[in-house]
């Protein structure tokens, strides 16, 4: 379970987070939406312990991240699989090595078991044939799928996704959404997804959080957000600019 209490973060006089509160139950799939620059990725980095909040606290499985030693923080991180926006595959390693390094580090499997695990994870994301490819030989969608395979390879309790469908064609986006849904429901992995895509929200979310003006503006179900009459929420959901910019397609 994850508990976020009243976190604040300021970068160079800009208040990015101004008192964010929420919690995520085990097995839940929570999607965080919000405009570009609203602090979604910053929030995610706080949950990974990559950034410390100026104020407030984050608890994962009852452990407050700001009270942990570096070693204890590493132990918490070992329960979290992270899928980065660009995949963040290691350039100097092929797909097999990208998965092997994670499994080697975070499990006690033997070499033959590691090989089996890699085969299985790549198969799950439909990337078995790219085992020996270098990241530079993969398309954006393929990189994200390998990134997902790496994130699930050590069987984490939590999976965090940073804009998993950004920059992908609609079919690939659908594939990624289905994978996120599968790992959440089949493997019971608690999931947090940061996205702009309302299609992703509608397809995978158990609960939706909307970040606006540094705070959680909305916290509710998919149906609630769909039916919301609030102008800020409905403009985001329907992709409509509130301001009149002076032109409209006829």
């Amino acid at each position: 379970m994850i508990n976020v209490s009243n976190i604040h973060k300021t970068f160079k006089d800009k208040d990015v987070l101004r008192g964010v509160d929420f919690s995520i139950q085990s097995g839940e799939c929570v999607v965080v939406i919000g405009k570009s620059g609203s602090g979604k990725s910053v929030l995610l980095k706080h949950l990974l312990g990559l950034i410390s909040p100026d104020k407030g606290s984050i608890e994962i499985d009852g452990l407050k991240l700001d009270e942990l030693t570096y070693r204890e923080l590493q132990r918490v991180r070992s329960k979290i699989g992270m899928v980065f926006q660009s995949g963040a595959l290691f350039d100097s390693m092929n797909v097999y090595e990208n998965l092997k390094i994670a499994i080697d580090r975070l499990t006690n499997l033997k070499q033959n078991q590691i090989d089996d695990r890699i085969e299985q994870c790549l198969d799950e994301v439909g990337m078995k044939e790219t085992k020996l490819f270098m990241p530079s030989e993969l398309s954006g969608g393929m990189k994200k799928r390998v990134g997902i395979a790496r994130a699930i390879s050590f069987k984490p309790d939590y999976l965090f996704y940073d804009e998993p469908t950004t920059g992908l064609d609609p079919i690939m986006s659908d594939t990624i959404n289905k994978l996120i849904y599968k790992f959440n429901k089949k493997n019971k992995i608690t999931t947090l997804v940061i996205t702009h895509s309302m299609k992703t929200v509608f397809e995978i979310a158990d609960r939706v959080l909307m970040l606006y003006d540094g705070k959680i503006y909305f916290n509710g179900s998919v149906n609630d957000i769909k039916n919301s009459k609030d102008i800020i929420i409905s403009s985001f959901v329907n992709g409509k600019e509130i301001l009149d910019l002076g032109y409209e397609k006829q």
Binding site: K45, L48, L50, Y70, Q74, R75, R77, S78, I80, M82, F84, Q85, S86, A88, L89, F90, D91, I101, A102, R105, L106
Partner: peptide, 18 residues
Amino acid sequence: GTMRVTEQIDAIESLSFN
């Protein structure tokens, strides 16, 4: 530097490496 700007260093950290 490339590893930093492409989030590979964050990925290293998320895999519990120092």
